[in-house]
Design a protein around this nucleic acid. Sequence first.
DNA 1: CGCTGGCACTCGTACGTACCGAGTGCCAGG
DNA 2: CCTGGCACTCGGTACGTACGAGTGCCAGCG
Lengths: 338, 338
Amino acid sequence: MLSERRLEVLRAIVQDYVGTEEPVGSKALTERHKLGVSPATVRNDMAVLEDEGFIAQPHTSAGRIPTDKGYRLFVDKLAGVKPLSSPERRAIQNFLDGAVDLDDVVGRTVRLLAQLTRQVAVVQYPSLTRSTVRHVELLSLAPARLMLVLITDTGRVEQRLVDCPAPFGETALADLRARLNSRVVGRRFADVPQLVQDLPESFESEDRGTVSTVLSILLETLVEETEERLMIGGTSNLTRFGHDFPVMIRPVLEALEEQVVLLKLLGEAKDSGMTVRIGHENAHEGLNSTSVVAVGYGSGDEAVAKLGVVGPTRMDYPGTMGAVRAVARYVGQILAES
Amino acid sequence: MLSERRLEVLRAIVQDYVGTEEPVGSKALTERHKLGVSPATVRNDMAVLEDEGFIAQPHTSAGRIPTDKGYRLFVDKLAGVKPLSSPERRAIQNFLDGAVDLDDVVGRTVRLLAQLTRQVAVVQYPSLTRSTVRHVELLSLAPARLMLVLITDTGRVEQRLVDCPAPFGETALADLRARLNSRVVGRRFADVPQLVQDLPESFESEDRGTVSTVLSILLETLVEETEERLMIGGTSNLTRFGHDFPVMIRPVLEALEEQVVLLKLLGEAKDSGMTVRIGHENAHEGLNSTSVVAVGYGSGDEAVAKLGVVGPTRMDYPGTMGAVRAVARYVGQILAES
DNA sequence: CGCTGGCACTCGTACGTACCGAGTGCCAGG
DNA sequence: CCTGGCACTCGGTACGTACGAGTGCCAGCG
């Protein structure tokens, strides 16, 4: 195990490097931190830390920079989560309170996160499968054409067109609407399929085809939308990546464009508690020089979706984690209210 | 007026520069294009073109590159719109046909445009004010809580929560729903305010408050959403900007994040026909080294929204314009069908 | 045994010089 | 009006040198 002072040296290296973006040497360390020992001693400690793989030198005779493993140790053992200042908290609340609908909530959240962390923010829309049904609406657009509208407790709305095999009367429509709602309102989306399974049987034979069609489109929507939607923002913060950024930024932008990649990224995060993935811990290789800080959020106890930020491994972990956690909490509150 | 040959020289310079991204000299020009004259002659022509402001040299004793004014002339007089190949057309149609709802249509369009042009694509959602009402739905969530859902002919859906000043019965609700729909279905959103103006009067006094509230939220939604939504994609194409891209890319990314800026950008485009804004012709200074190619699209004759791409001024104008135009046409078709 | 100061060594960076060549402008001649 | 020739400009590259931050190692001290 590393001695107390060596950990302290590592912490100092991480902090300085995050601040200056330049390899940090033994002398500078002793000047900026009160370690109580001389540069020579620090050099010895650094040699040990390097042997253990926590830090590395970009070139011989340069200072050291933390490795992914070094950041990992820093995050796990050396750094706490820095709580936000109360003006910041108030700003968050004010900003989120102005939202008029779900799109707006998500949009504001993304902007907020990006601004607070000065990194790229990713927010997943509340998941359908983990939400409950608030209402199912059926509208008649034409004699044989319906519109199906799903509304969740988190305010999300999905709509689909349904082409009926046969004309469908207003009374049958009202009937179907009523039965559908009585069965599924307040239930989880995941349970919907089995709840509506036997519905067609209770209809006149001439309407059964349409009822089945409606139900199959309903189920299809649930499946399709299980691939969740998400919103990203703050991509211009990528320009603060570092001097070598032209080469780094390309794969990151590409990864960010692939919703699938991002969803997988958030999916890998633990359901509860905050997840930090550092550099090569990310499966996608375009993100090997980035870190991802993600956390679940929800209207109740349970997470209905996740949000987080993507930034350079060289990031202010305590501050970022604090901001991510705070935003997730407030968004949860907002969703619970609506 | 410039002689035929000088125009030809300008065209050659634009084409070569777009291809190679390097200042083009007189010798290289005569080698790659059959101009039928010697480099010396071309040099004289270039001197004239430079005097007129169509081309410039980055440094003394370097080749020439086109100026914004040069590109403008090229686009207006020298270049046509390059139609897409038929495999490309088929690919577009296939790709867009798979869309399930409006979000999906817009999402696919953005990806398609970005891929075809290898630039940043921007697609505006169909405008509310130019759309017509397909349906207005009112749902009772709680005794004094309603949900208002608006559906447009282009498939766009907006929903809002309404907190009523007093409980609102099911019959009154059905009544309001019916009257509202009979008045506004099939009408343009812009006309809605005056169409519903006198609705509260026809209700019992106890319900008037609620009716007014519902209507005011309805109108508010129309106003708010007049600031249109849009989707962008293909930002990773910014990395192909050029060697000096680190400095260019930052303001562009920032501009792309500001929906307001983009909406203004698209708004400046003519309603019909294609608009090309080159370099400094763009009002926003972050976009002074980009060109914007935009065009309106719609389900019928009239444009309901706009779409386009943002790329370096050094872009393949004929190809880009062809792709943008083709995509707009197909999207219009898709919207008309749904 | 651990810390410290001293010292030689490494190597990346900055800077100055020299050189090369693409490209230009100009001019005299066809 | 076009062309070939010629002197000139100037950015880019290559090379050599000096500088300095930072390192590893070692002998000495508490």
